[in-house]
Design a protein around this nucleic acid. Structure first.
Lengths: 114, 114
DNA sequence: CCGCATCCCTAAGGATACTG
DNA sequence: CAGTATCCTTAGGGATGCGG
């Protein structure tokens, strides 16, 4: 194996690790999937629909916001409400998310024996 | 939202969670990517190339083998050697892995400012 | 309603040394 | 060479309660 392909391998390996680093944990891809496929959600809606406890959800959303994958919009209603949306940049992850959805569905079919 | 789309959403959510469950952790997708793209590797080669310590690598490989994503082949050489390969079924994850590689490369380009 | 503070527990992951 | 045993550290994630 020559130097060039060594470098190429390195890039591939670190590319995967970089992606895993951004979307690490049990919940980030699920949250993104919901926001991408179903649009803007309030904090409470997200919590109910995803089954994530508020503390965790809050933390995950902050990390996603840091990586510019979700945007946060505070609405000045009587009791304050907050809306979360996926950003255009998050759309670039759709490919990954869709592939995982398809694989998960197929895998379950395989496990339960069709 | 009607019953049918509720169910559809549920399926999508659990499909993602199912996939995350199978390929959880920092290393499984990297290991699979190496085996898929570069073919069969010995235990030691995998350890060196991935930078994973033996204890972790061994555990990850066992879990992958349980899920039929890698196969293990013992070679009766003088000091025994063991070869790991990705199974045909692991090929169905290629879509996911490739999408993550592409995203990671693109993301790094974005982070470093091109 | 949002989401932070606190407390807690488990699981993930790493270093090192050792055996078949 | 492969991989297990031991020990340890940290990070992930959950429950609950309070404040803005």
């Amino acid at each position: 194996m020559n130097d060039k392909s060594d470098v190429a391998c390195q890039n591939v390996h670190s590319a995967i690790q970089d992606t895993l680093y951004v979307v690490n944990g049990k919940w980030k891809l699920l949250i993104l999937s919901i926001l991408i496929n179903e649009g803007t959600k309030r904090f409470g809606e997200l919590a109910r629909e995803s089954g994530i406890s508020p503390r965790i959800l809050s933390k995950e959303l902050q990390e996603l916001e840091l990586n510019q994958l979700v945007s946060r919009q505070v609405c000045p209603t009587k009791p304050i409400t907050v809306e979360y949306s996926s950003t255009p940049y998050a759309g670039t992850l759709k490919e990954v998310i869709d592939a995982m959805i398809r694989w998960g569905q197929n895998h379950k079919r395989k496990i339960v024996g069709r």
